[in-house]
């Protein structure tokens, strides 16, 4: 940990010097992965468990998040002493708890499909070429007063309402620090379809040799709509696949025996 902290300013300096040269998107991504811990370390992670506080509309909500390779995730929130699964995805299908019945309900099939093509563990840029993604440098822009490289990440197209649509987002890499400080995405479905939202990353902190953003803030039209403050992160914790799967209801009593 100590080493890593010392290493960081040096890296920042090197990164800074490198900005004097032209950069390609590939180099920016490589430097980024190197800066946050290196591919070898990143690839060694098989799961993440996160304790966080979500902040929205003046409320603070305790959140637990689980992520597991290759593409499973689950987010639970606590309301009035009860844990509610806000969203869960087992790599194939997603589900959430219905707030009225407190029972699990599956997402519609399209939403699961979109999630499937969107899920990345541990990082969208890890082995991006093997995943069929591409990156392109779109120029330089200031984000939060900070000069950034704007990199477009294009994933495989997704099907929305039966129509194949491009799936891309922009990452803004701090030119000095080489980590993304903002991601711009576009709603793929629903009433906000096509409209952009911005996710800001900060409070990068080291966990077992890897840097993660401990603060994530989402904005729409320049206004914060959701904040996430990570309190604790645990790598490679044991997680059963069942944690992510839709909890099949117990068979109706009439079917028994």
């Amino acid at each position: 940990m100590k080493k890593a902290l010392l290493f960081l300013p040096v890296l920042l300096l090197m990164a800074g010097l490198q900005t004097l040269k032209a950069q390609t998107a590939q180099e920016i991504v490589e430097n980024y992965l190197e800066t946050i811990g290196g591919k070898e370390q990143l690839n060694a992670v098989s799961s993440i468990k996160m304790q966080a506080t979500g902040k929205a509309q003046g409320m603070e909500l305790p959140i637990t998040m689980f992520q597991k390779a290759p593409g499973m995730m689950r987010m639970d929130m606590v309301f009035q002493g009860k844990e509610v699964t806000q969203m869960a995805f087992n790599g194939e299908e997603g589900w959430s708890t219905n707030f009225m019945t407190m029972e699990a309900e599956k997402w519609d099939a399209e939403q699961s499909e979109i999630m499937k093509s969107d899920m990345d563990f541990l990082n969208a840029f890890l082995q991006y070429e093997e995943k069929g993604y591409s990156v392109a440098l779109e120029g330089e822009e200031e984000v939060e007063g900070t000069p950034c490289f704007k990199v477009k990440l294009t994933k495989k197209p997704v099907k929305v309402e039966g129509k194949e649509e491009e799936n891309f987002s922009f990452y803004y890499f701090d030119k000095e620090a080489f980590v993304p400080i903002m991601q711009e995405e576009y709603a793929k479905t629903g009433q906000m379809k096509g409209q952009s939202s911005q996710t800001y990353f900060s409070d990068y902190q080291e966990v077992e040799g890897i840097y993660f953003p401990f603060s994530i803030s989402q904005k729409f039209q320049g206004q914060t709509v959701f904040d996430l403050a990570v309190e604790k992160m645990e790598l490679n914790a044991e997680m059963d696949d069942a944690l992510f799967a839709y909890p099949e209801p117990a068979p109706a009593s009439g079917d028994k025996e």
Partner: peptide, 10 residues
């Protein structure tokens, strides 16, 4: 003065 990117801020 500078954007906060590394370390905790609360």
């Amino acid at each position: 003065k500078k954007r906060h990117t590394f370390g905790k801020m609360e």
